[in-house]
């Protein structure tokens, strides 16, 4: 494998990992606070991509960037307050059934409105091209097609190579969103209360905090992140009603591998899975099962996942 191949596969791994991370962080955040495995989380992504297509097509892409995450925040809070809150005292199986049922309703609803096939996503012009990476000794041909591309110089690259701009944008936006989420949790009072609540929600109630209300906001935040994933991930994952389910399974594995309820764990394991998928792409037989292989190996060595804490889901 040449240096260029390794670089391309690293970037692809990051891009795959970024989408899984956005979905898995929402899942693990909701699980860590509310103790619910939200099987409707993939369906939130479905709502987001269709909302992005509609709003992007009607008003414009930047409107979708702002409105879709906000819409998903509201949808998340309505979902939690309207349905899921009534299942906290019920067995996990009931929670799985109700969230899975919700996912099916949303998927079928999308199918009824938009059909089962992929519909085109209106990517803005500036996001449609390629990005050019070049190394020492590379001479960029004096053709306008090349000169107008966004260009990045990387000393280790041999000659030059191209990568779709939109995927780079997706990686950048994902890391911004993830950074924002971590900053919110780490550096704000709201974040402190949520982190404390993840460890001992009852004690926070004894200290006068209405932790239920904050956890509903957390649910909304998880949905908001799925909204960001939908706006930027739609063109890559396709816009179909069943894409939510396709994302949910690997994202759930990401959560388990990372350790249920652990945000850094989810991020780490999303990247691990992204890389595993990317570097096994040449061997399609392996790629089909590679995420399960990673899951088996990690869970054999660390039954609580990479960064799982004692007592969670035990």
């Amino acid at each position: 494998m040449s240096v260029n191949d390794v670089f391309l596969q690293l970037v692809t791994g990051l891009q795959l990992g970024a989408i899984y991370a956005l979905i898995a962080l929402g899942l693990t955040l909701i699980f860590g606070t509310l103790g619910v495995v939200n099987f409707a989380h993939g369906a939130l992504y479905v709502i987001a991509i269709y909302a992005a297509v509609v709003i992007g097509g009607q008003i414009g892409f930047w409107a979708a960037v702002i409105l879709v995450p906000l819409l998903l925040f509201v949808v998340g809070i309505l979902m939690e307050r309207g349905i899921i809150q009534y299942f906290y005292d019920r067995p996990h199986t009931d929670q799985i059934l109700v969230t899975f049922g919700l996912a099916l309703v949303i998927e079928e609803g999308a199918k009824a409105i938009f059909g089962a096939n992929n519909i085109p996503y209106p990517i803005p012009d500036w996001g449609t091209g390629q990005m050019l990476f070049y190394g020492t000794g590379a001479t960029i041909p004096g053709v306008p097609r090349f000169e107008e591309m966004p260009q990045v110089w990387m000393p280790f690259i041999e000659g030059m190579l191209f990568y779709p701009s939109w995927r780079i944008i997706l990686i950048a936006v994902s890391f911004l969103a993830i950074g924002g989420l971590f900053a919110l949790l780490q550096f704000t009072r709201f974040g402190l209360v949520v982190r404390a609540g993840m460890r001992d929600s009852e004690m926070l109630r004894f200290l006068g905090i209405n932790i239920t209300a904050r956890f509903a906001i957390v649910f909304g935040l998880g949905a908001l992140i799925a909204g960001i994933a939908g706006v930027f991930g739609g063109p890559i994952t396709q816009v179909t009603p069943d894409v939510g389910m396709h994302l949910l399974v690997p994202s759930f594995l990401v959560v388990v591998i990372g350790g249920m309820g652990s945000l850094p764990g989810a991020l780490l394991s999303a990247m691990l899975l992204g890389m595993a998928l990317s570097f096994s792409a040449e061997y399609s037989a392996v790629q089909q099962i590679v995420i399960y292989l990673v899951a088996v190996v990690v869970l054999l060595v660390r039954p609580r996942g990479l960064m799982g804490k004692k007592g969670v889901l035990e």
Binding site: R189, A196, R199, L207
Partner: peptide, 25 residues
């Protein structure tokens, strides 16, 4: 104010943050 039998100090945050959390409400 209940001071529970197993103390229920919140792990993963500092001593001071445990106090700050008590003053949120």
């Amino acid at each position: 104010q209940l001071v529970p039998e197993d103390r229920r100090i919140i792990p993963g945050i500092t001593v001071e943050e445990n106090l700050i959390v008590a003053q949120v409400a």
